[in-house]
Amino acid sequence: MLKAAGLECMRGDRILFSNVKLELDAGELLHVKGLNGSGKTSLIRMLCGLVMPNAGEIFWGGESISDLKEDYLANLLYIGHHLGVKAELTGLENLKINAALGGHPISEDQAWDALEKIGLRGREDLPAKVLSQGQKRRVALARMLVTKAKLWILDEPFTALDVDAVKMLEGVLNDHLHQGGMVILTTHQAYTPPKTTVKYLQLGEAT
């Protein structure tokens, strides 16, 4: 499904990585590894189409993502360092807006449901600015429960989460993979989903 070859990234006048290739099929997980500054985030943003590759191309179902544009993005869920959670809006509003803009609008009930499942019961109606860092993260991650996107791209999804939340997130990822979804992530957490093909991509020198 997702395929890329010869990717090269340049920041300033420094080449971060070059000749990166990857291939990901339904039900597979790709774990991007590398030291700080090896270009993990840049690669991830490149796969989202946010960063233009200096060289190389990315294909979704055989077509270049620069041609597909929104048709590709509708299949994509990205949660990065910046959560995309607005401090002045409540968890509920944040979730509904993000889902609608992501192309999969949800009902009020679905939103309540998802926030409860992600462990924010009783806090659905609070503005995000009064939530803790981990709780804000949960608001962002709640999108994973309501999205229909096939490809999830997650940059350090486990940071700032407590043990329970990490377990729950792992469960959500497992379900998604078993249903034929695809996940690309960077993490320092040891995470190996059962009965799933896990691929690794090493950027820069191995640790």
Partner: peptide
Amino acid sequence: YLDGTLEQFLLGAQP
């Protein structure tokens, strides 16, 4: 831009 919502707009399913 700072809180990452802009990024999500760029990744939205509409132009």
